[in-house]
Amino acid sequence: MGTAVVFVILIVICAMALGSIKKRIKYGSACCGTHDAPPSKIKVRDKNKSHYPYVYVLTVDGMVCSNCARRVENAFNSKEGLWAQVNLEKKNVTVRAKKIFDESQLSKTVNDIGYTVIDISLQK
């Protein structure tokens, strides 16, 4: 009797694993919990670095894939006077600003999209 119960449990686990594999093959694997197409990239019109005298480097926890990186970049690039670039390997965001920004504003921008700022530094 005990062997039959264990056998049934193993069959259920295998069926669930196969369903998960089928779903990943069909929709792709997304760490962000969605299987939608990646968000469209918001491009900054002014890419002249000399126009951005303030450079902040934010260490962000929770970014693990290119979709995460794009979400963070888009959050900053959608704001006037900001230009962000993510380095996914270092888990940081370089935010160039045309005017000085309060660190709490930058942190709130990241927190509002579901990530956590660990550190902010103003580069000179």
Rank of each mutant, 00 (worst) to 15 (best):
K26I: 11
S78A: 13
W83S: 10
I25L: 12
D61W: 04
N67T: 04
D36K: 15
L88W: 04
R70E: 00
A4W: 08
D36Q: 13
V95I: 13
K91R: 14
V86P: 05
R70Y: 00
E103F: 02
I13Q: 11
A4D: 11
K124Y: 06
T34R: 12
I42N: 00
T109V: 15
K91C: 06
S78I: 00
I113N: 10
L88R: 05
A4S: 10
S121I: 14
K79M: 15
V117S: 04
F76L: 01
C65E: 08
K41M: 02
K22T: 11
S121Y: 08
M16L: 14
V8C: 07
G2M: 09
T94C: 02
R24E: 10
K90L: 14
W83Q: 06
D36C: 10
H35S: 13
R71I: 01
C14H: 07
Y56W: 07
I21K: 10
K91G: 03
V110I: 15
Q123K: 15
N74D: 00
G28W: 03
R24K: 08
E73Y: 01
N87D: 15
P38S: 04
S104R: 11
K124D: 13
A84F: 00
V5T: 11
S66Y: 04
V86Q: 05
L106V: 05
M63F: 06
H35R: 09
R71F: 00
A97E: 06
R45P: 01
V5L: 14
T3W: 07
I25G: 08
A69S: 15
D119I: 05
N87E: 08
G114P: 05
E103K: 12
L88G: 05
E73A: 03
Q123A: 10
Q123E: 15
K91P: 03
K49F: 08
A17D: 09
